[in-house]
Design a protein around this nucleic acid. Structure first.
Lengths: 351, 351
DNA sequence: TTGAAAGCGCTAACAA
DNA sequence: TTGTTAGCGCTTTCAA
């Protein structure tokens, strides 16, 4: 065991210094109770505390008040480019309210996620923001059982019983934007590289794609869908390979995610095919720097920072008892037109 | 004020259930003291705790033990692509040791950073990892005064008195790799878009660039340096504009950072110039997806995840009193050759 | 091997 | 307006 470092000053020390009782110090330091003190005493305490460099022990305060002003954030993978802006949004809102974020990378493994959430709960977080992956998992159950306020971000619970709140993008609309754009360019044979079907975004976007195609009177075999097992570049490439083999007639593909679109780029390059001349591509997310790729990716933009802000705001309201039950926030995505989707190649030709 | 949610079980509750004293429960739950108990009692306690779903209140334990097993991580900007892998590395090492990370976005503002660090200190973090920006700031002083163990990551303290430890990349070597590569391609007139000179990476890389050029017998006016005020795309573009105006003879530019290199790409595109035909470009960091840009960026790779791992490991050793004073870890970078640097254009020509 | 007692530093009900 | 008292839930001597 290590030796604890230099003793810190306590409210007792300040009290002694000023000649008041510790509870008076506590009252002076808390803006909400300060007015119950004479201005003169409050001022003397504040000054003495500042002079001595006193810093309150928030742990002790939390133990007493049962509020830690700490929020747990569980991510599956911080290196996935969608999460940093979400985290930034969360952090900004929390900081403005005096809260801090305890961030834990849960990974994809359910068991490890359980552990992470339990550890956060043991640290008495006031609530949790879950950006974890799987659609119906035990983590939500765990939090619910612990009566911890939670908000899901970038995913939602499938069941309509609205036990939990979530902040998501409108995937139906997103896919409609993508498909409408391609159809307006003249495409009729459009494929979809879908995301994992155990994720709400994977399922929702597939649904949105199908609905949008149907709205244009388009259906199989003009349509083909392949499911990628993960939102990852290599999974996208592998899915693209299967899709292009199965349906060489396709003139355009909508990917459920920019990473998958990049995998599709890889496969096109490997086949010596050109985008958009041989195949038009539309992604989803508008993650950073996709405007710099060759060709710049046309994609559906999700405002991730705002997602994080909304999630943190919603959670804080729950923590304070101002919001109850399952309240969903749905953000509107936009289409960002760049250069990866163009007119279809000559009808009937195959690349 | 919100109503505290459902009461949680305490060690007392478990003690009552099993018919032992709370301190016995504590001993059973702690693997380090469990052996001092009869196996039978320990087993009964463990089972009762598991059955009842007991979760220890870590806050109370921390208050008593003066160890929070929590590490504060201060970042200037989580959306900067270098930080997610660093954070991932930190988080992985901490998690393996039972620690969690409290992450706070400090921003660039010193005052706000102070606040953030103070808040973390108040929460009794056992130590801090600072990835914050400025070279000589008050934040380090603040931590030192509070006697909090700290490790700097991706920056170091300039003064050689080695008060603090840091984990950095070997920028001298990184710039040498970049310059050697360009020189071997035939370049003689090479410019540098330097990073902010109040950051150790900005300063170090400029130094490395100058030294590497000198080693080849190259100096002004074959050399020109322009300083970007921030590691950002637009700052890079603006710096590139100044550099290209001032020195149209340059055939190659080394950027102190990939973001700056991207800004340079932007400026080249705006001028209708081609990379690498008109100008060769080498970046620094190898951030995700620069291999997908057009042209794929030749750059110096830094192993950011490992930086995070090393920083966390080093800090944990300090927290445990196993490491003292200023211990620096320097990681070796590599050159990743892609397509943004080629042979120089015809000598004497200007693009 | 287990229990008893004390206290980490703070806040909040209650008293004065 | 301020002090007194008690206790948040845990761990850790000390004693048995």
């Amino acid at each position: 065991m290590h030796v604890p470092r230099g003793e810190r000053l306590t409210a007792q020390d300040i009290a002694r210094k000023v000649g008041v009782h510790p509870s008076t110090v506590s009252r002076a330091l808390n803006p909400a109770t300060r007015h119950r003190l004479s201005e003169e005493v409050a001022a003397r305490i504040l000054q003495a505390a500042a002079e001595a460099g006193y810093v309150r022990n928030d742990l002790a305060a939390s133990l007493r008040t049962r509020r830690s002003e700490t929020i747990g954030v569980v991510l599956p993978d911080i290196t996935n480019p969608v999460f940093p802006p979400i985290l930034e949004g969360i952090e900004a809102v929390l900081a403005a309210e005096g809260y801090v974020a305890m961030v834990a990378n849960g990974g994809a493994d359910e068991e490890r996620q359980r552990l992470v959430v339990e550890r956060l709960l043991a640290r008495q977080v006031d609530g949790l923001i879950l950006a974890t992956a799987s659609l119906r998992d035990t983590i939500v159950e765990l939090c619910l059982a612990a009566q911890a306020p939670i908000v899901l971000v970038n995913r939602s619970e499938p069941d309509a019983d609205h036990r939990v709140s979530s902040v998501v993008s409108d995937d139906m609309r997103g896919m409609k934007l993508a498909v409408d754009h391609l159809v307006s360019l003249g495409h009729r044979r459009i494929g979809h590289i879908a995301g994992p079907q155990n994720l709400s975004t994977g399922k929702g976007r597939l649904e949105g794609f199908t609905a949008a195609m149907k709205a244009h009177g388009l259906s199989a075999p003009a349509v083909d869908v392949v499911v990628a097992p993960a939102y990852a570049r290599d999974a996208g490439r592998e899915a693209a390979r299967r899709l292009l083999e199965r349906q060489p007639d396709l003139t355009a593909v909508v990917a459920a995610n920019d990473l998958l679109a990049i995998g599709l780029y890889d496969e096109l390059a490997a086949r010596g095919l050109s985008c958009p001349d041989d195949l038009s591509v539309v992604g989803h997310n508008d993650m950073p720097f996709v405007d710099l790729m060759s060709p710049p990716l046309t994609t559906v933009r999700i405002r991730h920072r705002e997602m994080g802000e909304q999630a943190a705001g919603l959670l804080l309201r729950k923590v304070r008892g101002e919001a109850e039950g399952g309240l969903d926030v749905v953000l509107k995505p936009d289409l960002v037109v760049r250069a990866s989707a163009g007119q279809p190649r000559q009808p009937g030709t195959r690349p």
